[in-house]
Amino acid sequence: MVPISYYIMLSAALFTLGVLGVLIRRNAIVVFMSVELMLNAANLALVAFALQRGGIDGQVLVFFVITVAAAEVAVGLALLVAIFRNKRTADVDEVNQLHG
């Protein structure tokens, strides 16, 4: 069996990639994907820890997260479409009416 620490290291790496993606990438769709990566990094850690002790509580949480993430992305894409209609761009830097 693969040691649990490998999973955790992979999940930490994925989470870091996700955070970097959110902070660095400017296209809103790519930012969404990075957020998904963050959520899935946490999912991986949860499943790995649940596997380690043979429990299911962590795995149940993962199911809920997957479901909620789908709902969240639906709302996010709808907002993105509304922005795109107004401004013809998906670049988060160009969406800058509010500042100060």
Binding site: S11, V22, A28, M38, A42, G58, E72, G76
Partner: peptide
């Protein structure tokens, strides 16, 4: 849009803390 992006990121962070 901004609320969504920051909110989604914060739930990612929260979930990682939970894990």
């Amino acid at each position: 849009m901004k609320y969504f992006l920051f909110g989604a990121m914060s739930s990612g962070i929260l979930l990682y803390g939970m894990s």
